[in-house]
Design a protein around this nucleic acid. Structure first.
Lengths: 214, 214
DNA sequence: TCCCGTCTCCATCTTTTGGCGGAGGCCGGG
DNA sequence: CCCGGCCTCCGCCAAAAGATGGAGACGGGA
């Protein structure tokens, strides 16, 4: 077996503490080597050029140049460099954006240490490693309207009013039914669309063009 | 003083019971005369042509032709006929639509009897009579972005995430602040925009083009 | 006729949302 | 140097939203 080269890592995060924390326990791992840090996307891009890391741990929410854009440019200029997106929150737009931009992994900051290390090792081998919830988001995003469980007439009408910003109580009045009934319709709509709040449902309906903005 | 002609009224509502109820107590009023009923917009338009009522009490949510459209056509064909919009719920789109279409009044179905009668009398004189809350909605709708109290940087960012469907907890994570802080930002945003729910705030931001749908 | 889907409603429970007032730290302009 | 706006956080509270599981009615299709 050939000599095991250390995996060269670039940390990109706008929070000093986060970088410090990551450095802390990643440096405990013998075959990992943190070769540099950057606090925004622009810096990251430049450091990748000079340091040529194997793996970039990239925060997505940063000033100057966000992580998605930075990821895209890194993969453009240095396709061999693997990027693992690291965020504190799962946001659909970010998950999709990062993956489209070429991120090899998508992890949350509260991921347990050893999982992060596993992900880095996997990434250095070019394997894809996604946070389980991130997978779901991707699936949801990719889901086209025709593969959705169809909404019933009442559910469609309910969603229309939800997407207009009405409360359950108001919808109940408009339909002249009890509020519980509306809630049950709203719940089934959520389940069918795979969302978890009325705002998300509204956005979904808007995206699908099921309702207009006026 | 000249002979007091009875005010000729046309009731338009898709619910039999509503029409019956209205007929009930409106017919108690000596100078009101219910000359006909219709259960949808198309019917209403036709009846206006044949019955030539002075005032039309128009429900806005109806099958076949909605009340807004019916109102528009009635005012086109018979400008002297006054239309009072009557709904069970205050919906911005409907309020604005009805007023634009030429409705002389906008009342809720739970309006007290004598107020309704007052409104009819006022309408027959061509006076405008709006439900107080409806006025607010109109004002809000007419409010252009430049007359809005400006949002602070944090508030703008918060609104952006709200408009992506994130919960307060998720936003707090993204900003790395406590949830209470997010709530206070969200509340000020609501106050400044004049909305009362995150979905409405999201729709507002979308309408203003402050955020995209992606 | 019986079954299935839909629509309606109920109770119960937890979580989230939103309103209220207040408070301390920070920073920049007057 | 003080003031005002901004950001942060606190507690308290009421209301709304969501999840869950169940139930009766109705109507159409097998």
């Amino acid at each position: 077996m050939m000599t095991m080269e250390k995996i060269r890592i670039l940390l990109v995060d706008d929070h000093q503490v986060v970088r410090q924390g990551l450095t802390m326990f990643l440096s405990l791992e013998p075959n990992l080597d943190i070769v540099g840090e950057a606090s925004n996307g622009a810096e990251a891009l430049e450091r990748v050029g000079t340091l040529r890391p194997d793996v970039v741990l990239m925060d997505l929410l940063m000033p100057v140049m966000d992580g998605v854009e930075a990821t895209r440019r890194i993969k453009e200029g240095f396709p061999d460099t693997e990027v693992i997106a690291l965020t504190s929150v799962l946001e659909d737009r970010l998950v999709v954006g990062a993956v489209e931009a070429g991120a090899t992994g998508y992890l949350l900051k509260d991921t347990r240490p050893h999982e992060l290390i596993d992900a880095i090792l996997a990434a250095s081998r070019g394997e894809v490693q996604l946070h389980p919830e991130a997978k779901k988001r991707l699936v949801r995003e990719a889901r086209t309207p025709e593969m959705l469980e169809p909404l019933t007439a009442r559910e469609t009408e309910t969603l229309r009013l939800v997407a207009k910003g009405l409360s359950n109580k108001e919808i109940a009045k408009a339909f002249d039914v009890s509020e519980v009934t509306v809630k049950s319709h709203v719940s089934s709509v959520f389940a069918k669309l795979g969302v978890s709040s009325r705002t998300q449902a509204a956005l979904f309906a808007l995206k699908q063009g099921w309702v207009g903005l006026e």
